[in-house]
Design a protein around this nucleic acid. Sequence first.
DNA 1: TTCGTTGCAAATGTTTTGCACCTGA
DNA 2: TCAGGTGCAAAACATTTGCAACGAA
Lengths: 128, 128
Amino acid sequence: MNTLKYSRQREAIKEFLATRHDHPTADTVYSELRETFPNISLGTVYRNLSLLSDRDEILKISTGDGPDRFDGNTQPHYHFACRNCHQVLDLEMESIDHIEKTAAKNFNGNIETHITHFYGLCPTCIQN
Amino acid sequence: MNTLKYSRQREAIKEFLATRHDHPTADTVYSELRETFPNISLGTVYRNLSLLSDRDEILKISTGDGPDRFDGNTQPHYHFACRNCHQVLDLEMESIDHIEKTAAKNFNGNIETHITHFYGLCPTCIQN
DNA sequence: TTCGTTGCAAATGTTTTGCACCTGA
DNA sequence: TCAGGTGCAAAACATTTGCAACGAA
């Protein structure tokens, strides 16, 4: 593995994600960090987000609708994406890891992980 | 719902996807159809793929790695994406729809559907 | 005739990358 | 010192869209 050198920008990105629970996009991270680092570039944000998610220090969420989102919470958990307002919420649910065994039954490859996203209407949008 | 008018291009796209089981990308659909319709445009391919998947006549697969893929098989089933060769395979497995109930337990919104993808090494790549 | 569909090209939105300079170890 | 990190700008990718011409009903 590559040797990492400390960088204020990278630390700030990690720190920022740790305080947010709304799964911001790269562009949101960029705009917010601009207030502390007026010269930080979008390229740096993308480079660090991808570096951090490669190292499993943050989570990258691709819902298949709009840009990728990022999550500072690396504990295993699941996400819900609202089909109306497009916000992404954390779900508090028991583990469903057993589905990997189910999938492995008739499969000759090696299943290492899975990603599940749930979709529908969020508590707010359901009221209309 | 909108009234659809017959189009040879749209039929050919649907027909093409029905014969393939490797989940081609829009660009692959485009290149292959070019042989039958030398003037078909990428825009038309994208328009029809998105129209067909809105109507649930085909499936759109976003693995979060590379461009979207499309599947002519609309029967509920699951996909496996190889982290080495990036091919996408069908999994033959029993239904795991019950995970929607699990997810709904502590959630006030309405869960309408879910998407699960499995990742790892495919039978071919596992040998190296 | 009407209105959905097409081809083409330009535009958009997201993410990656080349490069010269900067910075941490 | 030197390898990794940064800012900037351009490029790469994937996808969408405006528009005039075309074609199905």
